[in-house]
Computed example of a mutant assay.
Amino acid sequence: MSLLDELVESDFVKISRSPDFDHFRSIDGLGRASSIPLGIRDFAASFAMLRLRGCTIYLQRTFPRILQIQYSTTGAIVGLMMDDEASLIVNGMEGRAPALLLVKGTAQCEIVEQHANLVAFVNFDSVDDRGWPGELDRPQVIGTERARFDTLRTTLREVLMLASRSPDTLAQPTVIESVEESILLAVDMAMAAASASDARHLGLSHYLALIRKFDEFVAANAGKALYSADVARQLGVSVRTLHNAVVAIRGMSMHRYMRLRRLWNVRQQLVRADAAQSIKATALANGFWHMGEFTALYRDLFGETPQQTLSALRKNPDRQS
């Protein structure tokens, strides 16, 4: 049983559980986000939120996806993996324990999660004069000492359990202040042993810009069949450069990524379609000419056939991706 399964709602802890991807709710308090699923079988995304005086703690169970998020904070956001199996790619850099994600101000992140993770975030309202590394409006993946990382992870676990199981204790005078100080000290210790992974980030900046232009181009041409050579030409780069950028930032081949985007376009169009729009017409418009293969790819990704998507929509008109 994971920590999130052990938590119960209280006067301090609020829990949001999504029954399926179509009802998935992002964490509003961290910034604007959109997700493209890499698979939604056994979907079990959820998160818990604990608001203290000067910070908010989030514990989230994710799902395999590409996450595009613009983090925004008045102070700093610190993210960390809550189990050793968790891993992800942030702007082309691998993040796993004992690494921390640090964001000050506003920063755009391109994240790939190949499998479900259990992650925690602490959004501090202010972090004046604490001497943490990092630049404003630039995300960083920061490595730290294992023992100090484990101390921070344990502190967050204990705080969440206290707020969930013993809210009366947290409601007592000065307890919240003491809890916040424990969290800040744990982060201070982890940051004191930190080493920012800046060198590779600099080398990836061109790829990041290229992928964002690529996504804008795909979004602007939704419903059209796109081909790698044409896309590369429109972006003013070679196919090889575009492929290398996709592998570095998205963690998959350009072929797989373009197919994923086309499948996601189909699903969004089916969910919004009127009665005159057929599945075959939608598939063909997005470059899928082999209907048997298209149906299999769609089912593997979304756990249902295109026809089942339409049937579920007719039964539940409020269902949206």
Rank of each mutant, 00 (worst) to 15 (best):
G287I: 13
E293Q: 10
R262S: 14
F294C: 07
T305E: 09
Y298C: 00
L301S: 05
A275H: 11
A276G: 14
A312P: 00
S278E: 04
D300I: 02
N316P: 00
G303W: 10
V266E: 06
A276F: 11
T295C: 05
A273N: 13
V271M: 15
L284C: 03
M291Q: 12
Q269I: 06
A296H: 11
R272F: 11
L263P: 01
E293S: 12
Y298K: 04
N316I: 00
S278G: 08
H290F: 07
R261K: 13
R262F: 02
L284R: 10
T282W: 01
W264H: 15
T282E: 02
R262E: 08
T295Q: 12
W264R: 04
L260I: 08
A296V: 06
A281N: 13
V271A: 14
D300W: 00
E293Y: 05
R259P: 02
A273S: 15
R267L: 13
N265W: 09
T309K: 00
T309N: 01
A276H: 12
F294G: 01
I279V: 14
F302V: 04
G303Q: 13
S278H: 07
Q307H: 05
Q307W: 03
G303S: 06
H290G: 10
L310N: 01
A276S: 15
L270Q: 07
F288K: 02
K280N: 04
T309E: 10
A273D: 14
F288I: 05
V271H: 06
G303R: 00
N286L: 06
A285I: 06
A281F: 01
D300M: 04
A285R: 10
L260V: 13
F288H: 03
R262C: 05
R261M: 14
K315E: 15
Q277G: 02
L313S: 08
R259H: 07
K315Y: 06
L284G: 02
F294D: 06
A281E: 08
Q308M: 12
A281I: 02
L313H: 08
L310D: 03
L301H: 06
A281K: 04
W289S: 11
A276E: 15
Q277K: 03
E293L: 07
S311R: 01
L313W: 01
V271G: 12
T295W: 03
A275I: 03
T295I: 04
R262M: 09
F288P: 05
R259M: 13
H290T: 10
V271C: 15
S311F: 01
A312K: 09
R261T: 11
